[in-house]
Each structure stands twice: as structure tokens, then as C-alpha cells.
């Protein structure tokens, strides 16, 4: 397998977890170049882009999941970025389907995506004026109780 060679082309830590899975940890600045190398390596499918909110460490972790059809390997690229004014570079020109994932990142986590023209437009949430809902400091129960009328059991019993 050529996967071991990834170390030589990617700036970051490459860890071969299993035969069919590699984890790659990179810096924010190296995301695009790492994904570019991976694409040249045959990782032709972008499965998912998402983020994890590590609120205690004041960081977001952006996660890209890639798949190589030829080698049947999953590569997971992770990058930690600061929680204050989070910003990443778009990878739309490498993987066109990243567009919607990045729009979702902006909407659900508040991570700005430079170079994506749709980042910041409302997509899934309409009429939203609160914190991005997937952040850990967003109180979902409070929001739901305040905004949506609940059914009380009493009125059902009559």
C-alpha cells in the first residue's frame, strides 16, 4: 500500500489506524494543500465535512472525511482552529460537493469559509437570530421552550 508514503507529501501527522483508515492531523493553514495531495493520491470522494466544538479548549476541530474507491481506504483529515473568529479556506474547487457542507459549517457552527460565495447565506435555518445551534454553548432546551409552544397534558384530559 502506498498509504505509508503519505507522510512524505503531507505536512502534519499521519497515523495509520487500521488497514482501511488513516487519520491525518494538520494545521489550519495546511488543510487545502493536504486535501490536494490526498486527491492526487486517489482520494476522489469527499464524504463529509463537519466540525466538533471543543469548548473547554476553546477550539473547533474541522473534520474532512475522504474515501478512495481504488484503494478502499478512508482518510480523516482533522484541523484544530481557534474558537474566536473561526475561519477556514474553501475546498470547493477540489471537491465541488464541499460547497453545501461549508454552508452548513457557517450556519451551524459559525465557522466562516473564505472563498465560498454561499457561506453565510441561510440554508437550513430560516428566521434565525441566535447563536449557531450546534455550538456547545447554545442552550437548545431553553430555545425550544421559549420559541415553540408546548402541549400541556391537562388540556388533553377534558
Amino acid at each position: 500500500m502506498e498509504i505509508e508514503r503519505l507522510n512524505q507529501v503531507i505536512r502534519g501527522t499521519v497515523e495509520v489506524k487500521r488497514k482501511q483508515r488513516v487519520d491525518i492531523i494538520v494545521d489550519n493553514a495546511d488543510i487545502v494543500s493536504a486535501l490536494h495531495s490526498l486527491k492526487l493520491f486517489g482520494f476522489n470522494q469527499l464524504t463529509l465535512v463537519t466540525a466538533v466544538d471543543w469548548i473547554e479548549e476553546q477550539q473547533f476541530e474541522v473534520v474532512y472525511v475522504l474515501y478512495s474507491n481504488a484503494q478502499k481506504v478512508v482518510a480523516i483529515v482533522k484541523a484544530r482552529i481557534p474558537r474566536e473568529n473561526p475561519e477556514i479556506e474553501t475546498i470547493e474547487d477540489l471537491y465541488p460537493n464541499a460547497n453545501k457542507y461549508e454552508v452548513e459549517l457557517t450556519e451551524m457552527f459559525g465557522i466562516k469559509v473564505r472563498g465560498n460565495p454561499d457561506s453565510g447565506k441561510p440554508f437550513l435555518l430560516e428566521n434565525w437570530h441566535d447563536l449557531p445551534p450546534m455550538r456547545k454553548d447554545f442552550d437548545s432546551i431553553k430555545y425550544a421552550t421559549e420559541h415553540y409552544e408546548a402541549r400541556h397534558r391537562k388540556e388533553n384530559n377534558d
Binding site: L124, P133, F138, A144, R151
Partner: peptide, 12 residues
């Protein structure tokens, strides 16, 4: 019931 986007009482 605790979701940020789901309404809870359709008949309103």
C-alpha cells in the same frame, strides 16, 4: 421536544 427547529404542537 428539545430541538432548536421543531415545533411541538401542530394544531396551533
Amino acid at each position: 421536544w428539545d430541538s432548536h427547529s421543531v415545533i411541538k404542537k401542530l394544531d396551533s
